[in-house]
């Protein structure tokens, strides 16, 4: 088993206009997009959400394969909720068999729901595809910085997120190494019942925890040696700045939001 093949965080590096956007704007617009999907209560308004994706994905240059990959794991859930809706929403009956009834309203609801969930996943994945984890935590920190006045440890939480992201690959590598070392001593990880398998993980988990704590202590020490004392008065190497791309993106999403609201209110389709 090659653990190092797993990629955590789905950042897809690139230099498209979407990549260049300010992470704060991307976070806000993603949030707006989610709201927009929930406002959309009929086909025409939900179509706006689909069209927006069709416009933005090509600009982002994220390959189609990745979108499929992000949507794939939730397909069973979508099918499941869709089918449930089909049977449980009452209305004009299209088809019936025993106690099972499918109504026209039920089918409509199922299709809307499926489309909405798929758009939701595809839309939010675009954020993580085009924003590096570090930029993302930076954006989150800045967006939530007003909460600092209320005493929320915003900087600390963002720093924890950054450190966590930084250490995921390190820990994966470490796990791989420890697994190899124990396998070299004949540890059997592949056979036996559930209980045996859990027991077999101990020789891996214990050294992993020990080394995670050791690393945490070393890192804390190194940070203190460099006079880290929290976010107070700290300046950044890369300051976030909104630019023309951000304004255009906001405008684009704004137009689509307006259209969605218009169709949702006006249309009964």
């Amino acid at each position: 088993m090659a653990l190092t093949d797993i990629s955590i965080g789905q950042y897809f590096p690139g230099n498209s206009p979407v990549h260049r956007m300010d992470p704060r704007m991307k976070l806000v617009l993603t949030f707006v997009y989610v709201i927009m999907l929930f406002i959309a209560g009929n086909f025409l308004s939900l179509a706006m959400g689909v069209v927006l994706l069709l416009v933005v994905y090509p600009i982002s240059q994220v390959p189609l394969k990745l979108i499929v990959k992000s949507v794939k794991p939730i397909v069973p859930i979508v099918l499941f909720t869709g089918i449930l809706n089909m049977f449980f929403v009452k209305g004009d009956i299209l088809w019936a068999w025993g106690f099972l009834e499918v109504s026209r309203q039920g089918v409509r609801m199922a299709v809307l729901l499926a489309a909405r969930i798929l758009c939701l996943i595809a839309g939010t994945s675009l954020l993580t595809y085009t924003t590096s984890p570090i930029a993302l935590t930076d954006g989150i920190e800045q967006l939530f910085s007003p909460l600092k006045k209320l005493g929320a440890p915003v900087h600390e939480i963002a720093m924890m997120m950054t450190i966590t992201l930084r250490f995921i690959p390190t820990l994966i590598e470490e796990t791989d190494k420890i697994m190899s070392a124990q396998k070299a001593r004949g540890a059997d990880l592949e056979s036996g019942g559930l209980f045996q398998r859990i027991r077999a993980l101990l020789p891996i988990l214990i050294p992993l925890f020990v080394s995670a704590f050791r690393r945490a202590e070393e890192l804390a020490l190194a940070m203190e040696c460099r006079c880290y004392h929290g976010g107070e008065g700290r300046t950044r190497m890369r300051t976030l700045q909104m630019g023309r791309v951000d304004a255009m993106a906001a405008l684009l999403v704004g137009v689509f939001l307006a259209a969605t609201i218009f169709f949702a209110v006006a249309g009964a389709v």
Partner: peptide, 23 residues
């Protein structure tokens, strides 16, 4: 392996050394 001391996990040295033979 390199830095093999990071693979120790048992509560006594004896048990740790016996891991291989036990397997």
């Amino acid at each position: 392996f390199q830095y093999p001391e990071y693979q120790l996990f048992e509560d006594t040295v004896y048990k740790d050394i016996s891991f291989g033979p036990r397997n």
